[in-house]
Structure formats: structure tokens, C-alpha cells
Amino acid sequence: MIEQDTSAYWRKLLALDQAQPANVLNKHRTWHRYLRPILYKLISLPLRVYCPEKVVGLENLPARPPYIIAANHASSMDYAVVAWAMGKRREELYPITTKLFYDHPFTSFWIKVAANAVRIDTEDEFFPALRAAAQVLKAGKAVYINPEGTRSVDGSILPFRPGVGVLAVETGVPIVPVYIAGTSKALPTGWIFPRPYPVAVSFGKAIAMEPYIEKKRSVQAYDVYKEVTEQLRQRIVALSRSPY
């Protein structure tokens, strides 16, 4: 084992070895979830007709959680189209949301209806987000992440932040790369209502973490986290170039 094997510290930061109650995620499942089937029925029509949505590779989802959905981010409708594409399996999914959106009077209600959103009390620190995501995965559910950390204005795929690599390697949970196309045109930043534009969601094959966990025995953890993150980005870029 190399001198720089630093997993123990990362595991401590992510609280991975701390016991957590079985019902730890219940607080994220607010009463709003009872309205969720209605919401997705309502957005089903525009997604079929107004912004026709094409879904590819749904069979690549692991048979059951935990797993990480990592998608590019170009519009505030991204989560909704992925969750809609996943059908009933969207109930497995817990997106991490900052207090800026979770507490905002306009978005708060809709975020809670759309998802079992996990609120974090910070804007710019990545540990709380990673810990919240690790908690979801430890509880056996799936987490939704935008590794770019912000919306891409023109729909291009921005550099990824490496926290997703840390999360996946240290929890040993597979990452499903997801490419969302067309949302930057259907609902650009600053718009409230979408305009007609076809959108598509491509689910890629899951990236297993076992080879990277093995690699970490002989390579600095930082390099492995970065490699996983880069591999994920390449997979999403490849999905963006695939015809669908």
C-alpha cells in the first residue's frame, strides 16, 4: 500500500463509516411527493408533443440502487426530463439541492413535488454536498448529480468537478453517465416556460468502481478520483456524439 493512500481521511470527511438511522432519508420525502404522479402526468404531454423527448439506454440503469446518475447540465428542466424518462424508478433518485433553490419561494414547492430533494446548507463548499450524497448511497438509494456544478449556457459540456470521483470510488457505487440534449434550447437560462424543441436523454453503461478501487492500492487516490471523473466526462461526451 502506498504512503499516500488517504482513503481513511476521505471516508471520515464523507462520514462513510458512521452509523446512520435506517429512516435517515424520510425527511427528504415530504408530503409533496403525493403530488408527484400528477406533476409527471402533466409534464408528460408537453414532453411527448411540445418538446418531444426521446429516451435511449434506460436498460443501462443498474437493476437496483445504490447508483449515481451523473448528467450534463444545461437547463433547469434537466432533472425533470431525466426523472420523467426513468418512470417509476424516479422514486429511487435523490437530487442534491442547495438552499438557494430549495428555500426559494418560487422553486421550493416545485422541487419538493418533482423529487425527494436533499437540501444542503451551503453554496460553495463541496463537502456538505458529498456527505449528503454519500448518506443517500449508504441508505441504498440513488443520487442525481451534475458534475459540471453549474449550467452550461450554450449546451456544451463544461469541465467536471472531481467530487463525483471521490464519491463513487469511496462508496464503491457505479456511475451511470447520462447525456441530456436539447434542454438548453427548450428552456434556456432565465426562461420560465419552455419553448417547443425536441429533447433527448441517453443513459450510458454504468461505470463500475471495482477496477478503480483496486488501482487506488498502488496509485495516489487523487489521481484515481481525477481519472474516474475524466472517464465519466468522456463517456458523456461520447453519448453526446451518438445518434439517437
Binding site: 488517504t6 481513511a8 481521511y9 487523487y222
Partner: peptide
């Protein structure tokens, strides 16, 4: 991330 790795190495 590398900053955290420095801390992690000090911890170790």
C-alpha cells in the same frame, strides 16, 4: 481536491 489530499497525508 489536492488541498484535501495534503490534509489527508498529514492525517496519515
Amino acid at each position: 481536491l489536492l488541498g484535501v489530499e495534503i490534509f489527508a497525508s498529514l492525517d496519515k
